[in-house]
Write a protein that binds this DNA or RNA. Structure first.
Lengths: 135, 135
DNA sequence: ATAAGGTCTGTACCATGGTACGGAGTCAAG
DNA sequence: CTTGACTCCGTACCATGGTACAGACCTTAT
């Protein structure tokens, strides 16, 4: 454990080094002490499994639509045991996610209709703008 | 037709006046001539049904994940009859949408698991970060 | 022991999608 | 014919989530 340099951590999380540093600045990832090979405290930072899983969590939570600020709260929350708040945030996000998913499905269907209408075979119109009008 | 002022158009589209102007600057909405009550060309711009439906289209397309730049292309495309390109864009976006929807469903399920785990009833743990790990 | 390549810090810059504001002009009601 | 609300225009500013240096330092292989 604690064997990765920042580049390794970034690779493991599928992000760039600068992004890791950015998350550190935002308080989403820790910035461990710089450890020299002889303990003189001015070496390089090392990261381990904890950090990798935290980084992956950040990416997943982003995919779930949480902002970085909310993710910071989730991480803080993970350390405490405030189940009530955790559930609250989860439920809020589930509702938002459900709404967004429905919206995207509707958009998907509109696009699907559009693609079919604009098939070269049919001689009909291919009206992009009206394709999104409430059908 | 062509009876709305910019505030009316904005209201009809559910956006702010500044947003309408922004879309005009981006070339997504037209900026008609300023018409004075006596035709002296220095009055106020008026907007009609076309503009409203265009504005609504912009919002829907945004919900579908198109960027404003892509939306500009869609609008331009709507005027031409390039069915091939229209289909292409639609299909691209459908694929992206499908991927995103799947991702969001996965996130939703992770959150759902989390909310259940953090139910006050269960005495178990309420581990936010690990809730997102590939189950 | 030196050179190459990664790290660290600070700061600057970027794209996207707005939002705000000052100052001048215009319109509509009283 | 004034007053208040709205419009127009230009420009500045904002939040979010990064991305990109430069210059100094550290580590590692040769």
């Amino acid at each position: 454990m604690r064997e990765l340099t920042i580049a390794g951590l970034a690779r493991a999380g599928g992000v760039g080094v600068e992004t890791v540093r950015y998350y550190q600045r935002r308080g989403l990832l820790e910035t461990p002490e710089r450890l020299g090979s002889l303990g003189h405290g001015s070496g390089v930072r090392r990261y381990g499994e904890q950090d990798v899983s935290r980084l992956r969590f950040i990416r997943s939570a982003q995919a779930a639509g949480f902002t970085l600020e909310q993710i910071a709260e989730l991480i803080a929350l993970d350390a405490t045991d405030d189940r009530t708040r955790a559930r609250e945030l989860a439920k809020e996000r589930i509702a938002a996610l459900d709404a967004k998913i429905a919206e995207m499905k509707a958009a998907r269907d509109a696009l699907s209709r559009l693609a079919r209408a604009c098939d070269d075979g049919s001689g009909g119109p291919c009206p992009i703008i009206t394709a999104f009008e409430p059908s």
